[in-house]
Structures are given as C-alpha cells and as structure tokens.
Design a protein around this nucleic acid. Structure first.
Lengths: 209, 209, 209, 209
DNA sequence: AAATAAACGAGACGGTACGTCACGTCTTGAG
DNA sequence: CTCAAGACGTGACGTACCGTCTCGTTTATTT
C-alpha cells in the first residue's frame, strides 16, 4: 500500500501504528479542509508524527491521499438480496453513501485529476481502488448467472470487456450524479438507474408489453 | 462568463483581447503543466498581461480554469445520423475526443474536485458545462421521438428526471472509462456502451434471439 | 552595501526603511543568539518583514551579517591626541570596545570563517570592513609624519606594504587578545602593545636607558 | 582530549582506532566542505563509524572540530636558527604554512566564532591550542636571553604579561594577514613583520643611524 | 485642450506551504 | 557496555506562488 517496503533487518524498525494514524489524520483533514487546503505538515501534526516521517513513507500528497481514500472503498459488500436488480441497487446505494462522505468526494476527484498527468499515480489509483472493486461486478454477475438472470458468457475476452463496461457505467453514473450534477444518488434515482441499466432506454418503457 | 461586469462608463476601457489571450494561455498551460502546477503568474506571462489584470477579471485559479475548459465543450454537436443509436455513438465519440485533450482532462477533474468544497464553483461548473450540454440529450430525445424510437413522455417531471439520468449515465461512463479506468473510449467501447444503454444488460444478449 | 541595486524605474519601489530595520534586527539577534543560532526567519520577524523580503535583498546569512557588522566599524575615529603613541592607543581602545560588543565578536569571526571557503564573501568583508578602516592607518601615519615622528616614505609601493603590515599587526593583535586569548584589551595592555609596536621588543626595555 | 573518559571496567571496550579515524575524517571533511557544510553524519560515514559512536565520544561539532584542528598545531617547532630574528621568522613561516591548510583556516576560525558564546568551548580552545603553543614564545625568549639579545626579565608577572602580548601580536598578525587581508604571509611579509616586531615602527628606519 | 478616471505593466510585499537537510536521541539486534 | 543501522521528533532551510499593494504610464470619456 505504501511507497516502499524496504523490510530491512537492521536498525530501528518503523513504528507501524504511525501508518494507521497518518491515514486517519489524512481523512480527517480531507473532511475539514478538502484536498487543496490539506497540507502534509498539518496531517503530520494531527497524526502526532513528524513531517519527515510522513515523507519517509509516502512520496507526496497525492500518494498519501490515494491510500487514505482507497481504504474507504474496501467496506463495499454485495449481500445477496435475491435478484440482480436488488443486488445492483444495494451496491450502488453503498457506493453513493461512500461518495457522500466529504473525504471521499474531495480526495478521490483530486487524485484522479492529478493522475491525468502522472502515470504512476494513475496506476496506483487503478490498483488500489478501481480494479480492487471490480470484484463486485464479477461476483454480481456470477450470482446472476446462477439465478439464470444472465446468460453465461462463452467468450472470456468479451466477458472481461463487459465487466469493464459495466463497472464504468455504474461507477461513472454514480460519480457524475453525485459530483457533477450535484444531486443525491437517492433510492429513487438508483431505481431509475438500475431499470435503465438492466432493460435499456427503450426496454424500460416499451420493449416489454 | 467572467467574475464581474462593472460596466463603468468612464475611464480606460478594458482590453477585450486580453480575455481571449488569457483563456488561451490557460489552456496552453493546462496542457504543458496540468492543473496543480499551473500558476496564475505563469498564465499572465504567457498571455502578455500583468498579474493584476488577471485578478481584476477572475477571482482565482478555479474560476479561470472553469471558464477556459467550458469553452471546449461548446463545440459538441449532434448531427443527425439516422438512428438514436447512431446519434448516441456520434456524440459520445465527440465527447471522448474532447476528454482526450489534456487541457480538458486535467482542468475538468480538478475543477470538479475543488467544487466539492465550494458551492459557488459547483454552480459555475453546472451552469457553464453540465447544464449547457444537457441540450444534446434533449435534442437527441426529441429526434428519437420523432422517429418513433422512443415513446413521448407524458409526465414532464419524470421526463426531466430521465434527461438527468441519461446525461449522468452517458457522461459518467465516458469520464470513468477515460480517466479512471484509463482506457480509450474507442469505437468498439462506444458500440458496446450504446447497446447496453439502449437495450439493457439482459436485452443486449438474450432478449433478441 | 546590499546584494544588488537594480534601480528599476518601474514597479513598486522597495521599502527603504526595511533595510535599516533588517540590519538592526540582525545585530540584535547576534547579541541574543550568536551567529550559529541566528536564523533568517527570526531576523525577518524581528524586523517586521517577510522572510522573502530578506532573501530578495541579501543572498544569505553571511552577506547579511557582514553588512550588519560592517556598520559597527564605521564609528571608528582618529581624534588628534597629540602624539603617535596616543593616537594609536586611542584608536586601539575604540577598536577593542567594538570587539567587546557581542554582535561584533560573534558576527565578525563567523563571517571570516565562512569567507575561507567563499571568495565573494572574503571580498565583501575586505571591501566593507578591512579596506574601509585602513583609512585610520593612513591618517595616523600622515599626522605622525607632520609631527616628525615618522619619516616620510619615499617608495610608494613600500609605503603601501607598510600600511598593510601595520593594519594586520594592530587589528590582528586586538582580535587575538580579545577573542582567542579571551582577555580584555584594557588600558594597560594597550599601553604595552603600543610601546612594543613603536619601539620593538628590544627597544622597549633596553634601547632607552 | 575528548569529552568524557568513563573508564568503565566492564562491557565491550571502545574501539581505540575509531578516535583516530574520526579526527582524520573530520579534517578531510573540513578540507572538502568547510565548517558550515560539515555534518557529523558525513564524518561518521567517512570514518566508517556509526553516528552514535561519534556522539558517545564528543559533545558536538564544535568540540570535535577543535580536537581535530588542535592536532595540526602540535607540529610547530622552534629550531635554533642562530638569532632571535631568524627564530621568529622560522616559526612564523611554519605558523603561516599551517594556516594555509584549508582544514585549519575553516575549522579554527569557526571554532573561535562559536567560542564567543560558549565559555567551555573557549576554554577548550585555549587549553588545546593557544596555551599549548605559548611554549614557543617561552622557548624563544629563553634562547634570546642566553644569546644576550634580550634582557632577563626581573618581574615574573610582567614577564608573563609580555609573553601573552607577544603571542597575541605574532599569532594575531599572521591570522589577520592570512584570513582577513587575504594575502599570503610569505617570506617578504614575515621579514617586514619581524623587523617591526623587534625594532618598532620608528626604530626600523630612523632610530639606528 | 484639460481634467478625470479607470485599466494597465511592473514589481515589491506579507504570507503560507513546500520538500529537504541535519540535528541529536531512540530503539533494535549482534558482539 | 559498545557498535552499526536506521527510524524518529525537531526546527531551519531556501524556494515558489499566493493575492495584495503601490507605483508611473496609457487610454478613454467628460468637461
């Protein structure tokens, strides 16, 4: 998760508790200040740690914030709610709830913005956040195929493409609704979204007479 | 578009060419430096303008960048390509092309990130960019209804909700694909996306035997 | 005296009072903290000035301290006390009094130490302090020659060499007495010193029966 | 010479070679970096020793540098060159040669500068360097008295005062010439200096017709 | 024409945060 | 008890931009 894990045998070992404290302090600072006013010196002070300790473990603000935010998304789960539509609604609501937290809003988008000019950062975001949560799509699809709601995909390459596509559509829509349109991804919106995702624009209204 | 329009009658009038030069310089700086390394002093120098002139017209970096980026999206068009699917594919590809330009990627996401803690900025983004392009959805839907591809919506409130939903789904998916997944929104992806959007997850594969 | 004198015609002019305040604050800090614990941030605070202002005018700690200390030596005078011996005693006592001030002791020697590795600094010290006070030797010699206490020097090159030599002997002895031996250059010592300087080691005791 | 001599009987004994290596490394670092850029971590690395070892033996940079420099002056000798003038010229040239070495210039003056605010350090310098070399004056005077060049001093207190005075004059002049005037204390200068020291300002030219 | 008034370029200014460096202390495991 | 290794809290460094301010100059409109 961190920048480097030298794992040296000799010398004084690193204080493991500091990592936890720093990431928590980072999230707290994101809540109170937002990304642009967050300073590493302030985070260090909140964490009860010297600024140098922070720089010894992370390369900069971006890397630190990505790690701090990534932890937020690990709490996403996919409980079995009986149908594909219900499963999707459930996970989308969870995702929306996370994006409602200011530390996620501010931190995530800023990190993405920075990543447009920093390939290493983009890779870090993808590894820590995006690919890590793709598990939810895989699990949901497998469950739906078990239930017979979705056909099993014969071509593995196309299957992977579809997973990516669905992930982009789900995550993208929630992010756009929450951060760009500035409106809540509430139960009603999630229901509408899920209907269109499953049945299509036309299908939702006319395709199933 | 700008911060203030004092509209004073007397005194030396503002140099109108400066606005254009500043916005162009801002985009150029976004390309070369990205949002976080862009400085207003540098923009002023590039535009051949004093820093004070810049501050007289914009409140700060965020406002300036939003204005500079907003202009990029005004070139979006919706040529009639014969069918709803083709129209969607056309505009999505245009949108993807804009998001491929570094000044848009870096500037847009950073502005969104900042807007999570600045209501005025969010409003500015919505007015300058989001709502401004919603016209495309409206036009596309009207055209599809003319063609009979979509039913006419009796409830005006639900119609508005659907426009918002579709805009979030289209724009969100392209943004997520481009900036978070870090893969191109190319013709193949756009085709897949359009199919799911129109027919739904199930419909695309099993509904049409 | 300062680093650069761009003397630009345009832009906001520099605050002239800041220079005085900064140099005074530097001397005060030298008194309270000494050279090694003096920080430019602290000097700036004392002077009621931003750190950047200080760096805009001086290249660093060494240059600043040299300028601050150099002013101290400008108060040296050579009042006519009737004889060469008396003139020497008078100026040596003045010099000793300056070296008794902590801002001079700490600042001067540290600057000299730094100058052993910095030619520009050595030149600055020589120009601001050493050569500047050589006037005292010149004036004293001229006066002694008027009185007939010293022969007029026919060879101008040798005369210059002698001025340098005397300056090194006088200043060096006082500095060494004060700072290295750590004992006061009081009236008694000054009398002894002047006698040896004028009459020589042997002359002082045996030559004048 | 060092800070502490715990002289403990038990436990692992100190590595005696480390002292030599550390002092040599200090001098080497003084040559390459000068006092202000010399760091104890760097010295420890050069000496192949851990930083903790260094701090166990010296209290800080000043003490270490004084010890390292003090050793340089122990090589001063006073070979019998037949006359007082020759003896003085000889030892002054030796002294000048030492002051020509960068480790002496930089280290000595910096230590003196620091000692203006640190009584313990001043005492250490006096004990290690100043008083230690006063032997040269004593020996030279004794030899001159044997030769009859100087009268024997009846009053022991005045004799001590004179020794101090001469030491301040000799050492001070060489130091000032070398470090402040920035010119070499070469054979010509040493001859001039010795003449003035022995015969006085006036005596050298007019007193001996 | 002269007076007025705002815009403009230049650049100094008080701040704040940066990321780095060295300090001197400490904590480990090995000897 | 010493040593090598290296993490740690502390505090200063010198730099970069920020957004504001003060200049002298330019360019209009209004007397």
């Amino acid at each position: 998760m961190q920048s480097r894990t030298p794992a040296s045998r000799t010398g004084r070992p690193r204080n493991a508790a500091a990592d936890t404290a720093i990431l928590a302090a980072t999230r707290q600072a994101l809540v109170e200040l937002g990304w642009s006013k967050l300073t590493l010196g302030d985070v260090a002070t909140r964490a009860g740690v010297a600024k140098t300790t922070l720089y010894r473990r992370w390369a900069g603000k971006n890397e630190l914030v990505v790690d701090a935010v990534a932890e937020l998304f690990d709490e996403l789960e996919l409980p079995d709610r009986g149908s594909l539509a219900n499963d999707i609604e459930g996970v989308v609501l969870q995702f929306a709830a996370i994006l409602d937290r200011p530390e996620a809003r501010s931190g995530l988008m800023a990190a993405v913005a920075e990543s447009t000019r920093d390939d290493a950062l983009r890779e870090r975001i993808r590894a820590s956040i995006v690919d890590r949560q793709k598990r939810l799509v895989l699990e949901g699809r497998a469950r739906a195929q078990c239930r017979g709601e979705l056909p099993s995909e014969p071509d593995p390459e196309e299957a992977a493409r579809t997973v990516d596509l669905i992930f982009d559509m789900v995550a993208g829509a929630v992010v756009h609704r929450t951060l760009m349109s500035g409106k809540p991804a509430d139960a009603e919106w999630v229901r509408d979204f899920t209907r269109v995702l499953l049945l299509g624009l036309a299908g939702g209204t006319q395709d199933t007479p």
